[in-house]
Amino acid sequence: MDDIEPDNVVDVDIVDTNYAIYRDALGAVLIDKLAEPEAKPNRRQRRRRGKKAAEKALDKPEDKPEDKTQVNPEAETEVDDWEVVETEPQEQKEPKPRQESTEQDDNAENSPSDDLAEFVDYLARETFDLLPEDLHTLAHHIWVADTALRDKYGIAEDGSTSGGVPAPGPLNAARVAELLPGLDPSPVADSMEAYGLLGGTKTAAEIVAPALSAYLTAVAAAPPPPRSTRDQADGCEICGRDWVPLSYHHLIPRFVHAKVVKRGWHRADELQNVAWLCGACHRRVHRFANHEDLARYYYTVERLLAEPEMQRYAAWASRLRWKGK
């Protein structure tokens, strides 16, 4: 039954994972934008000279030269009716939505930090749903296998690669506007404007562009290379114990190598990636997930340790003093 599973079924897990990555990328951009102080240039102001000094100047005969020795020193600074003075930039203030929390705000049901989190979640969900479907499920193995996809979303201007494959290039606002035609105008754009993110001619696409670029780079990146030799392992890569015997664990189990390559989950040159684990952790990993799930979702140590169950196990195993075979 496994072999006849249709390949066009949407992988819900990868969509949820990608959404979390996109939300973090957009959140980082929004926080940076909201933290930017408003740039206010020095203003040139005209200051009216004192009324008495002005009247005194008008009373002077035109043909009589001014006797500066008789001028009141206090009035001497007021030379003309108007003078231009430079003023210091006004104290820069953050946008209203980022008001400093008071003790009362922290105890309130909706504190500013909660409001900001809800704002980020709202914008992330609305804009992620507007993305083309092929970006919802994008992953490294898909990026590697699909030349048309790489051409569609460009490559990095500096020629950088991910696992030997050109990396996604930065998207500008014009390209984002093409990918998300319903973004400007929209309720999303209105919300951004209410938060002070849009000013002048700035559009919502300009806000989303760096976040979407960061998202593409993250999901298309190759998995971090695992340690491939025993000498490079300081200890078990799960529990960290360095006094126990280690054995290598195929991060993509050998039993599903043919299936993995056939379905495009990984490249053939990634099949021999290994992690060095103690006997106890090695057995735990294989009890945690079956071969196919290990190959599809847990093909790096980082992905394994991202699971709460494995985190709890690793914390427990790190305190064990017996070696375990």
Rank of each mutant, 00 (worst) to 15 (best):
residue 166 P to F: 14
residue 166 P to A: 14
residue 166 P to T: 14
residue 166 P to W: 14
residue 167 A to C: 03
residue 167 A to D: 10
residue 167 A to H: 07
residue 168 P to D: 03
residue 169 G to K: 07
residue 169 G to A: 02
residue 171 L to T: 02
residue 171 L to V: 05
residue 171 L to C: 00
residue 171 L to S: 09
residue 171 L to K: 12
residue 171 L to G: 02
residue 172 N to E: 08
residue 172 N to V: 08
residue 172 N to F: 04
residue 173 A to K: 05
residue 173 A to D: 02
residue 173 A to F: 01
residue 174 A to T: 15
residue 174 A to D: 14
residue 175 R to N: 08
residue 175 R to C: 06
residue 175 R to D: 03
residue 175 R to I: 01
residue 175 R to Y: 05
residue 175 R to W: 00
residue 175 R to E: 00
residue 176 V to I: 08
residue 176 V to R: 12
residue 176 V to S: 06
residue 176 V to C: 07
residue 176 V to E: 01
residue 177 A to V: 00
residue 178 E to D: 15
residue 178 E to A: 12
residue 180 L to V: 04
residue 180 L to P: 07
residue 180 L to F: 00
residue 181 P to C: 11
residue 181 P to N: 13
residue 182 G to A: 05
residue 182 G to I: 07
residue 182 G to H: 03
residue 183 L to N: 08
residue 183 L to H: 09
residue 183 L to M: 06
residue 184 D to S: 08
residue 184 D to P: 00
residue 185 P to N: 07
residue 185 P to Y: 07
residue 185 P to A: 01
residue 185 P to G: 08
residue 187 P to V: 00
residue 187 P to A: 10
residue 187 P to L: 08
residue 187 P to T: 10
residue 187 P to F: 02
residue 188 V to Y: 01
residue 188 V to D: 09
residue 188 V to H: 02
residue 188 V to K: 03
residue 188 V to C: 06
residue 189 A to L: 02
residue 189 A to C: 00
residue 189 A to S: 12
residue 190 D to E: 11
residue 190 D to K: 10
residue 190 D to T: 12
residue 190 D to R: 06
residue 190 D to S: 04
residue 191 S to P: 05
residue 191 S to H: 13
residue 191 S to E: 15
residue 192 M to A: 03
residue 192 M to H: 02
residue 193 E to V: 01
residue 193 E to H: 06
residue 193 E to M: 03
residue 193 E to G: 12
residue 194 A to Q: 10
residue 195 Y to H: 15
residue 195 Y to F: 15
residue 196 G to R: 06
residue 196 G to Y: 10
residue 197 L to D: 04
residue 197 L to R: 08
residue 197 L to Q: 04
residue 198 L to S: 09
residue 199 G to Y: 14
residue 200 G to Y: 14
residue 200 G to D: 14
residue 200 G to K: 15
residue 201 T to W: 12
residue 201 T to I: 13
residue 201 T to V: 14
residue 202 K to C: 11
residue 202 K to V: 13
residue 202 K to I: 07
residue 202 K to D: 01
residue 202 K to Y: 04
residue 202 K to P: 03
residue 203 T to L: 10
residue 203 T to N: 05
residue 203 T to R: 11
residue 204 A to G: 09
residue 204 A to C: 09
residue 205 A to N: 00
residue 205 A to C: 00
